[in-house]
């Protein structure tokens, strides 16, 4: 069985008036099928309001399905007693690092998660050290989070999740508030966790460049999965992506435009290196 399996997952936000009558229903997830294997790096794309974040919140049971089923780590999320197991195994990182850091010293912040799930103190320090190392923040363990840059804070937030030793981490636009350097730091840390520690990663983002390294990409629109595949296959469909309010990496777009203008460049170019090679072969 896959680590995450969603079948016809539905979520409805129901608004009620003062007498509890239903005023309006917004279907945020409309029959989503999702398969994520243990150890995979999956990216989810979609415009604002397409249902990405609602999906993310289902994965560690911050929300419950209105219909359909969702299994996480072999457990059905509808069953009440699976809640704590799933939350320990699926960690979440949100957009704003300032909303996720609570302690006044970096290492104490990272220790909060494991302490909260009852890990013995002796073991907590080992976990704190390992997770800070895994995101490259160990030299800041005694610092105040206030004085860190956005990218550093976000890596501390990821370390805080890693200290709970989850099998999977879900990142909901973790780089939206960061500068280019911070974005790179965070993405590199995430890719390393995936490759070296085998953590399953689900990355929700608006930055097309961040998706290139994923194993699989899901594109959402109006609560439905409208495209899925490897990054190269997804990004070769420039016009379809644009119709979902999305974009492709600048280099991919340039390759596409050159192709339209008559240069026989292959589809699905993702990196600068690939485009340079393709152009050199033609020249």
């Amino acid at each position: 069985m896959n680590f995450i399996e969603a079948r016809k997952l539905i979520h409805e936000y129901i608004r009620r008036d003062e007498e509890e009558n239903v005023e309006s229903i917004l279907t945020a997830l409309d029959g989503v099928d999702l398969d994520v294997k243990q150890g995979e790096f999956v990216a989810v794309l979609g415009h604002n309001g397409s249902g990405k974040s609602t999906l993310a919140k289902h994965l560690n049971l911050l929300l419950h399905p209105s219909g359909g089923t969702l299994w996480v780590d072999g457990k059905n999320t509808q069953e009440a007693d699976s809640l704590w197991d799933i939350r320990q195994n699926v960690g979440m990182v949100f957009q704003n690092p300032d909303n996720q850091i609570i302690a006044s010293v970096v290492e104490e912040d990272v220790a909060f998660g494991p302490e909260n799930i009852g890990i013995p103190t002796s073991e907590i320090w080992g976990r704190v050290e390992r997770s800070l190392k895994s995101v490259g923040m160990i030299q800041y363990r005694q610092h105040s989070p206030n004085k860190l840059s956005g990218g550093q804070k976000q890596r501390v937030a990821i370390a805080g999740v890693m200290a709970m030793e989850p099998k999977c981490i879900v990142l909901d636009e973790p780089t939206a508030m960061l500068d280019p350097n911070g974005r790179k730091e965070v993405l590199d840390a995430v890719v390393r966790l995936n490759q070296e520690k085998g953590v399953t990663v689900i990355l929700i983002t608006h930055y097309m460049e961040e998706v290139i390294r994923a194993d699989k990409v899901y594109v959402m629109d109006h609560g439905k999965v409208v495209m899925q595949g490897v990054p190269r296959a997804i990004f070769s469909q420039v016009d379809a992506l644009k119709s979902y309010r999305l974009d492709v990496p600048q280099i991919t777009l340039l390759a596409h435009e050159l192709h339209e203008a008559g240069l026989p460049i292959p589809d699905g170019i993702l990196t600068r290196q690939e485009l340079v090679e393709a152009l050199c072969q033609l020249y």
Binding site: H47, N48, E173, M208
Partner: peptide, 8 residues
């Protein structure tokens, strides 16, 4: 434009 989708 922080946090907006590409079209936005």
């Amino acid at each position: 434009t922080a946090g907006l989708d590409p079209k936005g």
